[in-house]
Design a binder for these strands. Structure first.
Lengths: 99, 99
DNA sequence: ACAAACCGGTTTGTAATACAAACCATATGT
DNA sequence: ACATATGGTTTGTATTACAAACCGGTTTGT
């Protein structure tokens, strides 16, 4: 019975991972408006994902302004896929086949 | 975008709900051994589910010993089904159809 | 030139909570 | 009578999701 990954399980982080899975890279502002979070909240969730090495942070510039972008790592993709598998297992666990 | 129900989202409670969905009624001891929790932990999670009216607690006796059983309420079944729907939405959100 | 407002985030404080340990009441050996 | 087991509940603690406050730098008045 594979355990549920709590890093991913938190809904905000699950949404972050899902978004990143679709777009390759996304910047802070985009995430903020898409998710509807406070800046501090987004920042700390990203921290957790970075510490788990599920997300890579790219710091750079857009003209003179700083610009931070995020992407999923390979580990992140792997972990997300395993997360869904674990959930599926719970979802289907009480069911009998009809045999 | 329907929100994730935090009462159900907690993995232990999700497992409790899933088990109850399959068995109609289950007692404390059965849940304990199936889930592998401490008694206190199980008790407090059940409390939360009861407060949310997702689970009904049936107190009675087995001979002279107390016996507590649990069952899903209609609300509980409904909430669980909505929970899975909400998760599916997140899971599928970044995908394009090929059109 | 200087201040005020804005942008792009990070750090800090707080309220909620998952969990185990301690506890309680009753029952069963011996 | 006393220890041990059964069936739970209450209490204490460490973690953590979140917003508010903050900070370095930039743009916009005036």
């Amino acid at each position: 019975m594979s355990e549920i990954d709590r890093v991913i399980h938190e809904p905000v982080r699950l949404r972050i991972m899902s978004i990143l899975q679709g777009v390759d890279r996304a910047d802070f502002k985009f995430m903020l408006s898409t998710l509807g979070l406070s800046k501090g909240n987004l920042s700390s969730h990203i921290d957790k994902l970075e510490q788990a090495k599920y997300v890579k942070v790219h710091k750079g510039f857009n003209g003179k302004m700083t610009l931070t972008e995020y992407s999923l790592t390979k580990r992140g993709r792997q972990a997300l896929s395993e997360y869904w598998a674990a959930l599926d297992q719970i979802r289907n666990s009480p069911q009998d086949d009809g045999s």
